[in-house]
């Protein structure tokens, strides 16, 4: 079940269906949110950034958790596929966190008047981005793929234990330094016609992530198992 050829076969079979479906969910959610959802009575239309910002922030965090789970599987059972999952998920997590940061900055400019605020949530998202970059830097500097997988697994497991401490300490730092002038936490009360498109966007983002992950995994499997017979057969039949 966890063998790379088996996974590769299923991913190749499902992706032509799965990618268009996930794209359409995303497009439906975005069109609904950006085009048809009512505008916010306080912020006007600029709140529509939420339909990109919130799903990518959610994904950025949950991908990190996912990586820690894959990482512990890779460390405990030495499952090859788990290491490949981790390696493929890290750049995606960094991408989504980056989108969350950029969209947050662009949203901040018209609403608060600055691109950046040293708010607890923004800061921990920034730290999360740094953690992703560290993991990517670590495994790409190690030539031996298996060793790279295990090193990245180790640091993501350690990181996921430290992340709650980072969050807690960032909260303290917040209370220590400034009475927060902007509160992001008190979000405008959402009506259901704003909430539903957001929900669809979140689902669409998850689907997109899964299809991107499978795409990357296929490449990872192909490059690593290059010299096995099944890869050669696959390539010779397909080309």
């Amino acid at each position: 079940m966890g063998s790379p050829p088996f996974f590769f076969k299923w991913a190749s079979r499902l992706l032509p269906w799965f990618s268009p479906i996930s794209f359409s969910i995303l497009i439906i959610g975005l069109i609904w949110g950006v085009g048809f959802a009512p505008s916010d009575y306080k912020q006007g239309d600029v709140y529509r950034i939420i339909f990109v910002h919130v799903p990518s922030a959610i994904l950025g965090q949950s991908i990190y958790l996912m990586m820690a789970i894959f990482g512990s599987i890779c460390l405990i059972w030495r499952a090859k596929l788990a290491g490949m999952f981790l390696r493929s998920a890290a750049p995606l997590g960094a991408s989504f966190t980056l989108i969350a940061l950029i969209s947050g900055a662009v949203w901040g400019k018209p609403t608060w008047g600055t691109w950046w605020v040293w708010d607890a949530r923004l800061t921990s998202t920034l730290i999360l981005f740094f953690l992703y970059v560290g993991i990517i830097g670590l495994y790409s500097s190690i030539d031996n793929k298996q060793k790279g997988d295990r090193a990245a697994s180790l640091i993501s497991v350690v990181g996921v234990i430290i992340v709650p401490i980072i969050k807690k300490s960032v909260d303290w730092w917040q209370t220590l330094h400034q009475p927060s002038t902007f509160s992001i936490t008190s979000s405008p009360s959402m009506t259901s016609d704003m909430y539903f498109p957001l929900l669809i966007c979140v689902i669409g983002f998850y689907f997109i992530f899964v299809s991107l992950l499978c795409n990357r995994l296929r490449v990872e499997i192909l490059t690593r198992e290059r010299n096995t017979t099944w890869v050669k057969e696959y390539l010779n039949n397909k080309v």
């Binding site: 730290i127 740094f130 953690l131 560290g134 670590l138 640091i155 980072i166 300490s169 960032v170 303290w172």
Partner: peptide, 14 residues
Amino acid sequence: AVIVLPLSIPILIL
């Protein structure tokens, strides 16, 4: 340093 510095933020803050 890139790997460890983000993890050492709680120590700095505390």
